[in-house]
């Protein structure tokens, strides 16, 4: 599993799916929705996020609706991983299902600033803040979930006949 490295986009607690994928853009063509992903929480995010960037957030990230456009939008904008104090269940399951790494890490929100550089090794679970030089141990995902992520999502597994 590759190491993910990029700019930190920092968010607080209870970032809900209406902030990530606002309902009013859901019926528009998908490319239009992508222009508004996380916009209410940080208007710069959709235009400036780059491949491999890492979201660091507080508690209950992704709470609310089951809309898969939320994690999918983040993935398609290039987000390499999300590390949060905790995730809402459906959002977390969606991330794994579509192959977007999501791990929890206690105290992570207090140790990263927006704009820091970070690196995450999913295999070891080590998260580094390259700006401050500090390292953190994230929770280890169960093997089944790592396998889904490595395959690129649950449908890819299904195609291969390994589900």
């Amino acid at each position: 599993m590759k190491v993910i490295r990029g700019r930190v986009w920092k968010f607080g607690d209870n970032i809900d799916t209406d902030l990530i994928a606002p309902g009013k853009y859901l019926g528009l063509p998908y490319e239009k929705l992508l222009e508004h992903i996380l916009e209410p929480a940080n208007p710069e995010f959709p235009s400036k996020v780059k491949e491999g960037d890492i979201i660091i957030a507080g508690k209950n990230f992704g709470c609310g609706s089951s809309r898969e456009q939320a994690p999918r939008g983040l993935k398609d904008l290039g987000v390499g991983a999300i590390v949060a104090e905790s995730f809402a269940r459906i959002f977390f399951r969606n991330c794994i299902g579509i192959g977007l790494p999501a791990v929890t890490c206690s105290g992570v929100a207090g140790n990263f600033q927006d704009g820091d550089e970070a690196e995450l090794d999913l295999r070891t679970g080590i998260l580094k803040n390259l700006t401050t030089g500090k390292s953190f141990q994230t929770s280890k995902l169960p093997d089944m979930m790592l396998e889904i992520l490595e395959t690129g999502g649950i449908l890819e597994m299904l195609k291969k006949g390994t589900f």
């Binding site: 089951s66 809309r67 898969e68 459906i90 969606n94 299902g97 999502g153 449908l155």
Partner: peptide
């Protein structure tokens, strides 16, 4: 229980 679109596809 609720799930996302891909999980429901499965």
């Amino acid at each position: 229980t609720g799930m996302g679109s891909t999980d429901v596809a499965v």
